[in-house]
Write a protein that binds this DNA or RNA. Structure first.
Lengths: 213, 213
DNA sequence: CGGTCCATTGATGTCATTCAAGAAAAGTGG
DNA sequence: CCACTTTTCTTGAATGACATCAATGGACCG
């Protein structure tokens, strides 16, 4: 079963995957493996070929923040300057295109590539702004609802979440207990149906949209 | 009295202001005026010459989100694609450089300019990520403390906040009542001293850092 | 089959919001 | 410059949402 992406950051840049394929190396990471680490030098750029990746950040107070989840064709960590501000880990077995940043640097004279990178960064910024908005204005129920909605491409198929409750909680800025309670609540409303903790399907798409508001 | 910037997004790009000055037009906006509107076409790019600007977003549920505050030399709204996702208003009387986006577009062959724009966007993304982090992990007191800390360049001078309590609240995702209470609390701790609602000075910088966690 | 990890559920507590009122500041017109 | 209005800010008390603490339940894996 494939994983439905929340959004495809670089989906409108048709050549990004092709560019990565031409310039970079495809590497494999087993589930749970670190793709790059927080505070490491950002010499490399990454693009998900298959699988699912999360970026996380450890804070001085011990808290953990999940930056985002990345799926097929998503560039990981456009925000990185000279060092990585997040670490990236494979949620499931992954293939990832890896290319030296210097290759991109050299290609700045190539307008198409510079444009593609700028566009990817701009989209990640938009995504982060929307995330900010969600944490700011939404209740726990609305956050969980819109999170699930992001996976609901069609209402018919069963979908599998590649991440656990702790990742969801750290992404939505909730506790795992609250996430669990909201999942139960949505099931009691007959809006979604879970089979175990990770597999679910949407029963009433319109109602879920309403609750995600 | 000048306004201390929270950060200067483009400060490490020495030529941005010069570029704007060369290519663009300097316009004046009186306090409260709209510089550009939400959902308008983003034909123009803006850079603050003098004054202070806020970006805001009106949500379907009636809530208002303050995206960020911009000061001297800051580019406004790098995230904008073809339409503005936020509106921008002058908090005080402002001069703003305005340049056609197409001028930047034509200049994509110029590596320096493309780089500068990418760098500006990257920095805005970093700032948004930090904002997200602050809203996620921090208590009301910590949020207000770190907000004030962002203005505290030196502990000696009195500083003037260009925005009101509602703007602070919408930026920090709190209510004006909570902001007010936290400001009082910080004063009771002899960490800051307010004179009216907008003028303040830092009494104990180290203590403020600690409270901002 | 037993152990470990992860998810669920319940009881209680805390912090920020909400509602309501009053005080201070800023704008307005004589 | 002063009275008046309007807006913004402050303060208090009660409510509510989510967190925390604690225990149970279930899935996966050797």
């Amino acid at each position: 079963m494939g994983y439905a992406a929340i959004t495809h950051i670089t989906s409108a840049i048709p050549s990004m995957a092709a560019m990565m394929d031409r310039m970079g190396v495809k590497m494999h990471f087993a589930k749970g493996c670190e793709i790059f680490g927080q505070d490491e030098d950002a010499n490399l750029m990454h693009c998900v070929a298959t699988g699912a990746v999360r970026t996380t950040r450890l804070l001085s107070d011990g808290r953990r923040q999940v930056g985002d989840f990345y799926f097929e064709d998503d560039m990981i960590g456009c925000a990185n300057g000279t060092i990585h501000r997040f670490s990236a880990e494979a949620l499931v077995d992954c293939s990832v295109w890896v290319v030296r940043r210097s290759v991109f640097g050299l290609a700045y004279s190539d307008g198409a590539l510079a444009n593609a990178l700028l566009e990817a960064t701009r989209r990640e910024l938009e995504r982060t702004q929307d995330h900010l908005l969600a944490l700011g204005g939404k209740s726990a129920c609305e956050r969980v609802a819109s999170f699930l909605l992001g996976f609901a491409r069609d209402d018919i198929e069963w979908l599998s979440l590649p991440m656990g409750r702790q990742d969801m909680a750290d992404y939505l800025d909730l506790t795992i207990e609250t996430v669990s309670r909201m999942v139960r609540h949505l099931q009691d409303l007959d809006v979604v149906k879970f089979n175990g903790a990770r597999a679910f399907r949407v029963l009433r798409h319109d109602a879920l949209c309403l609750l995600a508001a």
